[in-house]
Amino acid sequence: MADVLQVQDLNKIYDGKATFQALTNITFNVDKGEFIGVMGPSGSGGKTTLLNLISTIDRPTSGQVIVNGQEPHKLKKGKLAEFRRKELGFVFQDFNLLDTLTVEENIMLPLTLERVDSGEIDKKVQAFTQKLGIDSILNKRTYEISGGQKQRTAIARAIIHQPSLLLADEPTGNLDSKSSKDVMQTLQMINEKDKTTMLMVTHDPSAASYCDRVIFIKDGKLYNEVFKGTNQKVFFQQILDVLSMLGGRFG
């Protein structure tokens, strides 16, 4: 299978009062249709930095990120915008919805920026919101809906342009356990039905157990990876084991 995402020898060093190496020689590949989790002890860095580098929000100090054969960090600003519009979808912990817009308008924003025909937009919005179960709140503003609904709105916005790679940063971090479960099931459903490739950063083991594979990062270095077999509960236990090992050995 073709690799949607290749990460090679990625390094990130933050210059500041104390120079800090957030990532050291990270290398891994993600296949098309794969759902990858990135975990690590909360607070001890690397997860979000890694995601920021892949998502072009931040620049690496050295190394490569290749998405669908393109290297986004080498693109010029105009091309980079187009790249983000076509190849990437984002889901954040704090949703990052625009509160001046309604749910529907937030979802259609990527298509608007792409100047897609208005009729086409309506069709897509309808299809995706029905799939996510948010078609009844389309005309609500963001402050009128619950956290779970906000995150599903953000997911709809992230997938409406059918990106090659969906990136999620602690998507359940601000949600209660019921909403977390809903959101994770939604992501899993999209991954299975649409074959959308996903990369999710989380420190929540139950959220990570929805993935196909989980990569563990400790102090900016790759530590371990765990593949899901057939059973989610067994996978969940394996994740917990690695986490306790991570904590136990280094904590």
Binding site: S55, I57, K77, G78, A81, E82, F83, R84, R85, K86, L88, F90, N96, L97, L98, L109, P110, L113, E114, R157
Partner: peptide
């Protein structure tokens, strides 16, 4: 600022 950040990440071009 965060609004511009969101727009950028959604793929708004510098021109837009």
């Amino acid at each position: 600022k965060s609004e511009f950040g969101i727009l950028t990440i959604q793929g708004a071009s510098p021109k837009q």
